[in-house]
Each structure stands twice: as C-alpha cells, then as structure tokens.
Amino acid sequence: MVRLITHNLLACHAKGCTTNNFPLAFRDVQLENREAEYNPEFLKGFMPKIEWNALVSTARELGDVSLPAECPEPGTETDEFLHALHHVLMEIHVEEGSMVCPNCQHVYRISNGIPNMLLAEHEIK
C-alpha cells in the first residue's frame, strides 16, 4: 500500500545519503486502484507539503497524466483538479516492485504493498 501521498514524503535515509536522495524511483511496479473517500479539505491542507514536480513526474511514470505541470495557487483549485489530485495521492497503490534511491542506488523492495525500509549495518548513520 505505497501510495503517492507517502512516496512524495519519502527520502533515502541511508548513511551519507543527504543530497539528490529524493524522490525514490519506482521500478517494475504492479499497481492497484482502490477507491478512497474524497476529502477536499485534507487535500488542500496537504498541498503545501507536496513536492509538486516529483509528484507529477512520478504519477506520469505510473501512467497517470491528469495533473498539471504547475501546482495551482491556493484558493484557485478547481473540483476537477482536486479529484485528479485525490486519485493520484490516495487511490493508486503500488503493490509490488521497488523504490531506488537516485543518489546511492539503495533498493527498497515493495512486497505485498509493504516497502522494506530496513538498512544493512554499514548503511546506518
């Protein structure tokens, strides 16, 4: 159950990996769409936390092109936009595959919807 809402917050936490460690790149993913309750207030509250370029490019990699390249200014979000954002953040689930750090190439495997974030001894800060 990795959704893009959490993927957009995740950065690599391996030792010495402090720059270019976001966003983790999806590889060989299996996706599942699951309907979630639409909550526009939550979405608006969450929007300032989003790294927009990362979200748009990751969504496109996963086959969803519904988001605009520029994030709308606060207060100008249309219903159509919020529904698209809702779907991208909350309803696309990555069930299998992996996430790879663009900097140190650490591979975080996703199995049964759960990413394995455990580091080996030499990777711990």
């Binding site: 159950m1 990795v2 995740l10 690599c12 979630a36 919807g113 759960i114 974030m117 455990l118 711990i124």
Partner: peptide, 22 residues
C-alpha cells in the same frame, strides 16, 4: 494489519535506524 484492511500505508521499518521522511 493488511488482513484487517487498515487504511494507512504500512512500512517495514526499524525506527532505531532513523526515519526517512522529508
């Protein structure tokens, strides 16, 4: 937790290794 179909995203994580969130 998966069987019980909770809504949250779940991570296998050792918190003693530090968290990886922005």
């Amino acid at each position: 937790a998966l069987e019980r179909e909770v809504e949250g995203d779940l991570f296998l994580h050792d918190i003693g290794q530090g968290l990886g969130f922005r």
